[in-house]
Amino acid sequence: MFNRFANPNRFLRLSRPLVPVMAWATVLLMAAGLYMTFFTAPADYQQGQSVRIMYVHVPSAWMGLFCYVGMAVAAAVGLIWRHSLADLVAKATAPIGAAFTFLSLVTGSLWGKPMWGTYWVWDARLTSMLVLLFLYLGYMALQNAFDDPERGFKASAILVLVGVINVPIIKFSVDWWNTLHQPASVIKAGGPSIHPSMLWPLLVMSLAFTTYYVWVLLLRVHAEIAASKIRALRMRQASA
């Protein structure tokens, strides 16, 4: 029983000092990113000031995808090497990724209103993100559906691995379906031709979102470790 926690304890010792580092990094990067977003980044010649939405929309979408990949890697490690810490990382990543995906949808539709004239179009990228949100919600629902947390970890790990094989297929089919039904979308942001004055704020904001992710991830993993210790202690007290 204690062997199982030897590893998490070392992780706790190593990662505790990282929490304030990540917190400060997030605060500073976010402040710099917001300053650049509103004061140094130029308005787009076509989209005017509304282009500033890009600086939260694009990082959210990137993080939404990044978290899913991270969750899949953690789930695979947890499943193959029975690494309990990886299970906790996968579980802790899910709500953060879902939040970012949700944000990318909301900001995308708020950006779409002035650009497309409507809050929602079945644009290929928006639709893919919507499906991704459902995948996150399904993962979290399965994770929490078992009385035995160990079952939740394993079942949801298999689900996220099935999902990660499916994500490219879903993306491909949604793109295909979309080109069939309507012309390409109006917004072409994030292409390689983006001007440096817009690229820098985007990169700083993305970095801020990443440090935020690490910060909240550490907090959640620490909480999960505490929860599993509580469970172990309760079990022992019940059996004593």
Partner: peptide, 14 residues
């Protein structure tokens, strides 16, 4: 630039 109703809610919700 006239987009206040879309820009500020985005940042607020985020």
């Amino acid at each position: 630039g006239g987009y206040a109703a879309f820009v500020w809610p985005c940042f607020a919700i985020t």
